[in-house]
Design a binder for these strands. Sequence first.
DNA 1: TCAATAAGGTATCGAGTCGAAACTATAAGG
DNA 2: CCTTATAGTTTCGACTCGATACCTTATTGA
Lengths: 183, 183
Amino acid sequence: MSNSQATLIERLARILHNDAHTGGLKPTQWEALRYLARANRFSRSPGALTVYLGMTKGTVSQTLQALERKGCIKKTAAKDDRRGLIVKITKKGESLLADDPLIDLNATIAALPKDTKGELTASLESLLKAILANRGGKTFGACKTCRYFRRTHKNGAPHFCSLLMEPLSGDDSERICIEQEAA
Amino acid sequence: MSNSQATLIERLARILHNDAHTGGLKPTQWEALRYLARANRFSRSPGALTVYLGMTKGTVSQTLQALERKGCIKKTAAKDDRRGLIVKITKKGESLLADDPLIDLNATIAALPKDTKGELTASLESLLKAILANRGGKTFGACKTCRYFRRTHKNGAPHFCSLLMEPLSGDDSERICIEQEAA
DNA sequence: TCAATAAGGTATCGAGTCGAAACTATAAGG
DNA sequence: CCTTATAGTTTCGACTCGATACCTTATTGA
């Protein structure tokens, strides 16, 4: 087989990119919207999105402007820091996500043999981990898997982040966080 | 783990894309140059590149113009069809490929445990095959693995393509072809 | 043989991407 | 306070990308 793994990944990436021109959004706008739908309350900011996407803040600023113009998101002022913004997905944004072009890929993956699927997941995770380690990138894992996560066992009580010293709702702890570090 | 396989692939794709802004080329220009370096003589045309990249011919035309402006490629008229063009990589194009940003990814992959590497390759190939089958995409496999490939056993003699009814040099049969179909 | 049609490419438009650099406003730290 | 860091925006220029219209050369079929 003459295809290197890098070539395979690049080809896959190209296909994904081409498919992401639907629903009136551009590929990067889809990525931003997806991120915002998964991020917890510490991570729904232009700055966190900038780190996630690995782009410059100027570019991200423009992408968010486009998404706001299209009615998919709404920027509101952060409560604690008057420089900061919190980005919220609108109803329209939510409903667009129901037609996320990435869903097709998930369906194709779901149809793979179970062994292949497992190997795909495991090897991709290893690779991503290696790449992020190489370049000191943030992992953006789920909040509840973080070394700073403190579980509260009282019923209904929120959990706690010992890095930011902030309470964590059940919802927030299920979501991905810019500060997450493996336990 | 909260990451779906599609999310992992998308994230990998984003990292690759961000890294591909080096050497004065843009990500798409790198992809085009890489393709041209691997394609056999039936596949070094704007049309074949269009199919490979899955874009519209207008876009590919512009990308090739940019590459030609930068001195990486040279367009020459096709001999058999006066509409067609053959694209050739220049010395400068070749030397740029030596600093292909994708090489870093290959190095990272090479450093993975052998088992992981094998699983990565196998599962990615399965996935790509499934995707291409779903949408009837061309495989762009190596010429010599094609059902139309006819090997000539006389020493030094060229091989033969029974689809295009054309002789195949050893070099061409090692390269990828737009017409390739698994044997 | 001579239209009609197909196929290979280019030109142009408009929206968006993207890095770079300059800029504004607020925070934080001596 | 004054300096420096941080969060975002703005502007610029080169490029991406689909859509559409267009030009030229092949092919087909009546």
